[in-house]
Amino acid sequence: MDDATRMAAAEYVLGTLPGDERARLAERIAREPDLAAEVAAIEARLAPLAAALPSEAPPADLWERISDRIGSEAAVPAAPAARFRTEDRERPSAEIISLRRSLAVWRGATMATTALAAALALAVIVRPDFFMPTGREEAAGTTDRYVAVVDTEGRQPAMIVTVDTDAGTVTVRSLAAHVPADHSLELWYVGGEGGSPRSIGILEEREDAKTLKVSASEFARIGEAAIAVSVEPPGGSPTGSATGPVIYQGKLIAEPK
């Protein structure tokens, strides 16, 4: 590749190529794989700079707008919200301040005929200091948002769990979770290092519920953790560990910061 073309590719990536030249180069990139590869290589070299810039929260409804544009699935009316129930009274607690319904819960096309569809959506706001246990490293740049796609192996994703340790919010969004009749679904935090799963709470179809008490230690090593959902007797596991089958699970993924 000659020097002039390479510089044009670099200025295309930078954004400084004048408008008409930019348009012409974009057409060439679409036709010339070598040029496209050079542009991609330059983009990759400079990307760490963009990746290092601070994040900005987009408006809360933007995902709905995008989702509306990409989907063929019909919108489903908002479903009853879920609640977390107190499971562990011994530990530091946090209080839910807000609980809201999902505006547009997406439901997969295929539903298990024997299962009760639970379209759950839940925002839990806890005290900001809750997620900052003593001794935890809080270095600048540490990721503080985590996402898990919770599903059965190789099957349709069932729910998305988002944890924002900075804002202190936990959001559970059900996509196609099914609650077997006469049972409860219990949400578990599975920490790293082979530790025992810890109950986060029960997912229930409820109009209103206002309390969440879970321990800070459950979230202290969240970057190594996973979320699992098991089927339990009504009201949750009587033993403090999962007694029924784990039907959904997913690893928490750190959001780039």
Partner: peptide, 18 residues
């Protein structure tokens, strides 16, 4: 897989918006 795409959105939308 829309759920994966939504999770992707949750993971990187703040970075891209910034």
């Amino acid at each position: 897989e829309r759920a994966a795409f939504e999770a992707l959105y949750q993971a990187v939308s703040g970075k891209l918006f910034g």
